[in-house]
């Protein structure tokens, strides 16, 4: 038990040090490194997807397939919950 706590503390320390370093090294909030993608979406959304809302255009048009995937995640979760809570014939 002692050893386990020691290992846990050690590895958590290392992981958090690395993640904090990572957080410090990423570029500051609101100042993107590169914004070609953002600019493209701002420029072309209205023409290409015909929507005023850029966020919805990204979610349902440019990355619509991801949204289908996310909707499928929900579908999977529902199917899983219904499956797990079904009535089972006891042997």
């Amino acid at each position: 038990m002692e050893g386990r706590m020691l290992v846990a503390a050690g590895s958590l320390t290392i992981v958090s040090i690395f993640l904090i370093f990572g957080a410090l090294l990423i570029h500051p909030f609101g100042v993107p490194n590169a914004y070609k993608m953002d600019q493209y979406i701002i420029d072309h959304t209205q023409n290409e997807s015909g929507a005023n809302n850029g966020v919805t255009a990204v979610v349902f048009d440019y990355r619509g397939f991801d949204t289908l995937g996310e909707a499928t995640v929900l579908f999977t979760a529902v199917a899983g919950v219904i499956l797990v809570f079904r009535r089972v014939k006891k042997e």
Partner: peptide
């Protein structure tokens, strides 16, 4: 406006 986006929104709404 919006092309297929409203249709997809309706479908996803029903689903959710």
């Amino acid at each position: 406006t919006g092309g297929t986006l409203p249709l997809m929104n309706f479908a996803v709404g029903l689903k959710v």
